[in-house]
Design a protein around this nucleic acid. Structure first.
Lengths: 194, 194
DNA sequence: CCGATTCTATACCGATCTGTATAGTCGCCC
DNA sequence: GGGCGACTATACAGATCGGTATAGAATCGG
């Protein structure tokens, strides 16, 4: 049966290490950041890092898992305080991404960036990345179904493309206000599908 | 004044090296691929690699430049044999991306993936990446202007988002047929903007 | 046939990579 | 107050990193 994955002991320093690693991985890429730098930035010895996480690979997985978790919580919270109309909820998703990008520095989607460096499906981080995209598509799908669209899956996929495109365009600086533009485009697509 | 950039001597082996580097960089990421591996895959000594390219950084720049050049030629060629209606030309862009992804293995956009690893604007590869995206936006803009749209810039940006989103979704495997779906969505957006 | 260019072969450089070993300090809980 | 978990400090291992040095073989135009 499946091998039990070792639990992380979430001591205070473990969290500090993960925060430093998250910041560095996102800003400079995963392969470009060494464990020595992470330990130094976290104000911790390498021994502590390896006592907590065991390997760099595991630290990468926790980075992506945590980032995914924070994003879902952030989005859920935003949606919870949004009027329960399909249009408002759709707009809230894109607005949340806009805020997220504004706060987090905005180098685009961390999952997409990680996927550029980790293509091997056998890598444990691969599932985290793919799962997050499946979850986002599911979110759009639910939104379209709840609105009673005639072709919810089709529209959900189009919304997904606009959303992914917005994160990329923002990250690379293709044009200013990409996420907000995507929001308007998504609302237009949505209105026409009703 | 601007420092003259050293010319590459495009000897047969130089091309072989660039082909190997391109394949490896795209498949595994830039930082993950060492010059020793590139030389070995190209059937060449490291000395030859450095005689031709001088540094890994330069090889990376040439990788992106060449990829960009090949893409533009590929797309121009496709557009040249496309009926001169705005709809057909728009569809041809997405169809070209679909073919490109089908042939090249489909790990998404090489520029976006490179940008995940190279964020520093001072890096000489940064301009190549940003320029390619500006060129693509310009292509969509011209297409919208030629069609006499009332708001060509707005529509061009939406098309750009759908296109970028399609490459990401395809690369990450969000759902099957992402590029073809984007094509249909783009045509719908375009039709409505006329 | 000469000389320049392209390339092979191989060994090396210092730095950095992930990961481990050893020894010891601090604080907290039973 | 004794043991245990979390942590520091430091040194090291073996591999790999980008890049260089030296020497020589193959090719080719003048």
């Amino acid at each position: 049966m499946g091998e039990a994955v070792a639990e992380i002991a979430w001591t205070p320093k473990a969290r500090t290490i993960l925060e430093a690693a998250s910041r560095l991985f996102y800003a400079h890429g995963i392969a470009a950041v060494g464990v020595d730098l992470i330990a130094e930035e976290a104000g911790v010895t390498k021994k502590t890092l390896y006592d907590r996480f065991g390997s760099k690979e595991r630290l990468v997985v926790e980075y992506l898992r945590h980032r995914d978790e924070r994003w879902r919580e952030f989005l859920d919270h935003r949606l919870a305080e949004t009027p329960d109309t399909p249009e408002a909820r759709l707009a809230a998703v894109f607005d949340a991404s806009g805020s997220w990008m504004r706060d987090a520095g905005g180098k685009g989607c961390g999952m997409v960036n990680a996927h550029a460096e980790i293509s091997d499906p056998a890598h444990p981080a691969h599932r985290v990345i793919v799962d997050q995209k499946a979850w986002m598509l599911g979110l759009f799908r639910r939104l379209c179904r709840d609105a009673g669209l005639t072709a919810p899956e089709e529209t959900a996929r189009t919304l997904m493309l606009l959303h992914e495109g917005a994160l990329v365009a923002h990250g690379i600086g293709a044009f200013p206000g990409a996420v907000h533009h995507a929001r308007d485009a998504a609302l237009a697509v949505f209105a026409r599908a009703r």
